[in-house]
Design a binder for these strands. Sequence first.
DNA 1: GTCCGGTGCA
DNA 2: TGCACCGGAC
Length: 323
Amino acid sequence: MANSNFQSTILRWYADNGRSLPWRETRDPYAVWLSEVILQQTRIAQGTDYWHRFMRRWPTVELLATATEDEVLKEWQGLGYYSRARNLHAAARQIVANGGFPHTYENIRALKGVGDYTAAAIASIAFGLPHAAVDGNVYRVLSRYFGITTPINSTAGKKEFQQLADELLPRDKAAAWNQAMMDFGALQCMPQSPRCLLCPLQESCHALRNGKIEELPVKEKKLRRRERFFTYYLLQNNGLTAIHQRGPGDIWQGLWEPLLKEDPFPREEAEVRHILTHQTLYARMMAVGATDADLPEGYQWIDFADLADYALPRLVEKLLEKR
DNA sequence: GTCCGGTGCA
DNA sequence: TGCACCGGAC
């Protein structure tokens, strides 16, 4: 199998270059769980001190369960994402109530604050269970090495990467493998300026061979839609109305529309909401009596009845339908 | 200023 | 399915 080279190279690299971290010197599920929760969204450099402090103050899950939420939050202070601390505390009580730390993936996954990634990490590291932990590092390594362009934050992408990670997982070395992949992503195949020149996988890495390192992994941009507020004035001049053709540099280039005034500030009233890829338009249309002299610059009179002959934006059609 | 990231929840 | 949660790196 072509992937055995990938797997053996990663494992060898890990044996030579893996980080020695305090929570890797134990298989105590409590210590592992604590490290994984602290390291969600947090860099090792920042999280390590907190892990030591928690382990010193509450060396077991039973002791953590006796703490108050306030005490846990106080100890968490400065780490951010405080729901992690609240969930950690709640889960400690959950664990004690259940008679001890869970040792199946499903039961670990059921703990508050433990999602797919964290459950797989704990299950593999503390219990040797064959579950592939897929975090940001793993997405990056897999997308680059295998040249996968499916966006990692799409539903299809998550499924595809998890499936691939499951296939690659050496079932008898889950703990080492998961940590190897994460360390490889963090130390070798990092987001910016990865160390491809020194990479043991450079011969077979799809992204490197095809010059796609900078483009992978693909992430769907969460587009923040700009809001715009349009008022259309439907001029009425003895059966004529005024329209103009939209120019370049904005939406609907080349399409026609009645007199448009864009409001610079958010407005409450809107007849129609129209969602485009990068903007949400709130629009209304008002009929206004007019004479020949009212024709605005750039507009022209047409028979109102001919309006349908012009290419109109869907938004304008919707507004006209509402009349 | 922008980007990054697991989980929980609407 | 999209966003809120936070602090740090750049």
